[in-house]
Design a protein around this nucleic acid. Sequence first.
DNA 1: ATTATTGCAAACCCTTTGCAACTTA
DNA 2: TAAGTTGCAAAGGGTTTGCAATAAT
Lengths: 144, 144
Amino acid sequence: MNCSSPSKKLDYALAVLKERGHRLTSPRRAILELMAEESRPLAAEDIRKQVERQNPCDLATVYRNMDACLDAGIVQKCMLENGKILFELVGEHDHHHHIICRKCERTERINLCLADEMEEIATSLGFTEVDHVMELYGVCGDCR
Amino acid sequence: MNCSSPSKKLDYALAVLKERGHRLTSPRRAILELMAEESRPLAAEDIRKQVERQNPCDLATVYRNMDACLDAGIVQKCMLENGKILFELVGEHDHHHHIICRKCERTERINLCLADEMEEIATSLGFTEVDHVMELYGVCGDCR
DNA sequence: ATTATTGCAAACCCTTTGCAACTTA
DNA sequence: TAAGTTGCAAAGGGTTTGCAATAAT
């Protein structure tokens, strides 16, 4: 079911960042290790809290790392209905979506994406570097 | 191309709100008139600025009206990549998506939605009241 | 040695909330 | 007259930024 194991995802992420001239610091390593382990999208604050159980880690550091990882294409955003943003480390060819519970914010992975046709339309409208975000929202079994 | 004319959309919105026991105040009327006229998603602040050219209108009033309209299903959210939220008045059976320019934030309507299959998956995972948001992002012809 | 990266604190922005005054039905 | 709605001002919460200190290559 899972496209790539935690350690593979971590190795891939480290390789991509190195390739791009980034340095491997201990907060960065801790953040990526956590995200590779955790297979769900996380809020910046959650990442900081969990990383901080081992090493101190500033929120700004998390955000700056997320920026770098988004640019590098190894992190994917997930947007809550209220505009809050979650981050998820992804492997190669690992694009997917989620169904998010409105009440507890639990996310469940959905390994399906039908956006190709829509991206073609966007391209035909003159847009380049087309990408997309899609989120499903609902109320999960536990919260009903 | 356009599913419903401005005046129809406005009438529909007013009817739905009345049906739900809401009152028709002058800021509310002005907000809805503007949104019916404007066929694109707008930020709360944009709505306020434009409405204020005729009547004074507080930002909190805009947000509270958007809440009411979202509950009533006559307004649809549109999320920018940075988490900012735009609002768009929609008619009956008027669900659609957008391609949004990363640079100028211009939005172009895309009259296609392929989310049914994904919503079915979400339902099969035990979620109820399933809904979705999908946004395409790119760089438009003018900004390239 | 060079330059990316970090921590800290402050700034930012959008959004929400409390409350008294005002309107609508 | 009762209850929804508004304006104002303040608070909230997530995200970004400047800068000097630090650490990686």
